[in-house]
Write a protein that binds this DNA or RNA. Structure first.
Lengths: 212, 212
DNA sequence: CCTTGTGAAAACTTTCACAGCT
DNA sequence: AGCTGTGAAAGTTTTCACAAGG
């Protein structure tokens, strides 16, 4: 890591990677900043700046080498090997996540699921047996997982996430719509569905047009 | 609308509102920018700036009036009355969204669900009967809904969203991890679960700590 | 002494525009 | 001729710092 990479750039890298992989599947070897930006609704200058920050991946007068970029981005994002994740909370959302095919496609697999409800513990969803949340520490140690997904409701969210952290989980994807506190060395990212709806509501109300 | 409100400010408003409502339930009438910012992990200067942009809601030396702010934010975000939404795609994710209680809590109700799979059409999930996607135009007209949620997979996403738009939907929450094109007067917001995981992966890999 | 309101500075991100390779 | 690399400009957001008012 030479310089600090801006967060917006970082967030765009995943989009670049996904597009480039599809592009590569079509057998294309070279892409221009214009092609890449157009497909993602960005400016070509922005793509060039982003890729420039990461290093020099292009050839002037030619474009960017697709396999080279794909390879770099996979490495850079830490996606070169399959990652295992645990899931806590096997209600509706949890079940949906267990069956969600998108994770596996992007090399994340939920290898272990937990709940506190005795009626669900022991059942199997999509090949994953649901275990008692009390056993989380053991299981996380055994499986050597550092990724955790929280699909528990608001009221138990902080408690559940404390347990994850205590078990050794270092990166958490949280679906509970509440501010969660984690130690400095744990990274958490929250997906908040109602906030997104409220964002839409604002724009509907104020009659603006904005893309994204 | 006097001046342009920055997008980051706008996105924070929902968080303010949610916190303030909880605060209000506890019977508190006044809150300082410090209390509010602390609970959300922001700086007090930022909260003051955000609220300053919206208007003058505080009293120097005292703080902000909670009910007044809550009321304003609800109105400003267009949340003062219940909103109806339709859902397309009743696979695992769609089913989970139909049963998700968080939407109703924040005044959004899914009143209508669609799929193209004959085996699901006609079944009822959480009180909502699943209808044939072919009937979407009629139903949207009948229900006068402008919110749509897409829970269809990548391959059919653009097609499904085109149908929504054609039916009169103006605001879309999209879960398909792909770039979607909509007309200028339609607002779309995408939630992309794998991008969030890749964001975590980057931080794990680079050993950084960042909150959010 | 408390806390907001607010201009100004600082920090950050995007876009411009063109020099420099192929 | 075409497209990247890249300083510099423009635009945006956050933070500072303190005047104004309860």
């Amino acid at each position: 890591m030479k310089k600090k990479i801006p967060e917006p750039t970082l967030r765009r890298l995943s989009y670049y990677l996904r597009f480039l992989e599809r592009f590569q599947e079509e057998g294309k070897e070279i892409i221009s900043s214009k092609e890449l930006s157009g497909s993602l609704g960005l400016s070509d200058a922005q793509v060039r700046r982003d890729l420039f920050i990461l290093g020099e991946f292009g050839k002037r007068g030619v474009g960017y080498n697709v396999p080279k970029l794909v390879n770099f981005l996979n490495l850079f994002l830490g996606l070169e090997k399959k990652q295992k994740a645990i899931l806590v909370g096997c209600g509706n959302l949890g079940k949906a996540l267990l069956q969600y095919k998108g994770f596996k496609k992007r090399s994340f697999t939920i290898t272990c699921a937990f709940d506190k409800d005795k009626r669900i513990i022991g059942t199997v969803i999509n090949g994953t047996k649901i275990k008692d949340i009390k056993t989380i520490k053991n299981e996380v140690k055994k499986k050597k997982t550092i990724y955790g997904i929280n699909a528990c409701p608001v009221l138990s969210a902080q408690e559940v996430i404390d347990k994850m952290v205590d078990s050794g989980i270092k990166a958490i994807l949280n679906f509970a719509p509440v501010k969660i506190y984690v130690p400095e060395d744990v990274i958490i990212s929250s997906v908040d569905l109602t906030i997104e709806l409220e964002w839409l509501s604002y724009h509907v109300h104020h009659y603006n047009r904005l893309r994204k």
